[in-house]
Simulated scan of single mutants.
Amino acid sequence: MMFSMIRYHVGHNVPGRDPEFRVECIADQLDAAEWQAQDAESVAAYHRDRHDEACSTSPRGEGGTCVCADYAAYLQAQELAERCEKGEFVPSFRIGDEEWWMRPVVGCGCPCDCEDPCDGGHIHTAVNQITGW
């Protein structure tokens, strides 16, 4: 079966550092956006909870806005999740100190661990953690 040679490396890192979490190699742009949206939603919840614990205002709108870093990161993560959920390809986005990215890669060479004949539609760990621009 023929499949696209373009895959998408999806991850996030503090610029100049290796990613703390694994980078995914995903076959389809919409699947890459969905993966990024789920990660961003999780990070938004993390920052929302940290904000709720540290500040007297709520990011849910009941107490106005806050100038703390966790509130800002919460809003940024929410924006990325919403954009990705709409199927938008967001090649680079900042959440707090981290750059979040989806990068198209041609012939990335990431190994496939499929036991069945591979159709190229799977998600696996990317070999090249940070694919350069």
Results as ranks from 00 to 15, higher is better:
Arg50Ile: 04
Lys86Val: 01
Trp133Leu: 08
Tyr46Gln: 14
Asp18Lys: 11
Gly11Leu: 05
Ile6Met: 01
Glu88Pro: 06
Asp70Met: 07
Ala44Met: 07
Val10Arg: 07
Leu75Val: 15
Gly96Met: 12
Thr65Ala: 12
Ala81Thr: 08
Val105Ala: 15
Tyr46Asp: 14
Trp100Ser: 06
Pro19Tyr: 11
Asn13Trp: 03
Trp100Pro: 10
Ile130Cys: 05
Gly109Glu: 00
Ala37Arg: 01
Pro59Val: 15
Asn13Gly: 01
Tyr74Lys: 01
Val14Met: 01
Asn13Asp: 03
Val23His: 04
Ala37Thr: 00
Asp116Gly: 03
Gly63Met: 07
Arg17Ile: 00
Asp116Ser: 11
Gln76Lys: 02
Asp70Asn: 15
Arg48Trp: 13
His9Pro: 00
Cys68Glu: 10
Arg22Lys: 13
Ala81Gln: 08
Cys55Gln: 13
Val127Gln: 06
Met2Cys: 00
Cys66His: 13
Cys118Glu: 09
Pro104Thr: 07
Met1Pro: 02
Cys118His: 10
Asp52His: 10
Glu24Val: 07
Gln29Glu: 15
Ser42Asp: 12
Arg17Ser: 10
Gln29Asp: 02
Arg60Lys: 10
Cys114His: 04
Gly87His: 09
Met2Asp: 06
Asp31Thr: 01
His51Ala: 07
Glu115Trp: 09
Leu30Arg: 15
Arg50Gln: 13
Met5Asp: 13
Ala32Asn: 04
Phe93Val: 03
Arg50Trp: 11
Pro59Asp: 11
Ile6Lys: 04
Trp101Tyr: 15
Arg103Thr: 14
Ser92Ala: 15
Ala33Ile: 03
Glu115Cys: 03
Glu115Arg: 12
Gln76Ala: 15
His47Thr: 10
Glu79Gln: 13
Glu79Cys: 03
Arg17His: 11
Trp35Thr: 11
Met5Pro: 04
Trp133Ile: 03
Arg103Val: 13
Val14Trp: 00
His9Lys: 01
Gly64Leu: 04
Gly61Arg: 08
Gly121Ser: 14
Ala45Gly: 02
Val23Trp: 05
Arg7Glu: 02
Cys66Gly: 14
Gly107Ser: 05
Val127Tyr: 02
Pro111Ile: 01
Gly16Asn: 00
Pro59Gln: 10
Phe3Ser: 13
Asp116Gln: 11
Arg50His: 10
Leu75Trp: 09
Pro111Asn: 04
Ala54Thr: 14
Cys108Val: 00
His124Asn: 08
Pro15Arg: 04
Val43Thr: 14
Pro117Asn: 06
Thr65Leu: 07
Asp70Cys: 10
Phe3Arg: 13
Thr125Asn: 02
Glu20Ser: 09
Arg60Cys: 08
Trp133Arg: 11
Tyr46Ala: 12
Arg48Asp: 12
Ser92Ile: 12
Glu24Thr: 05
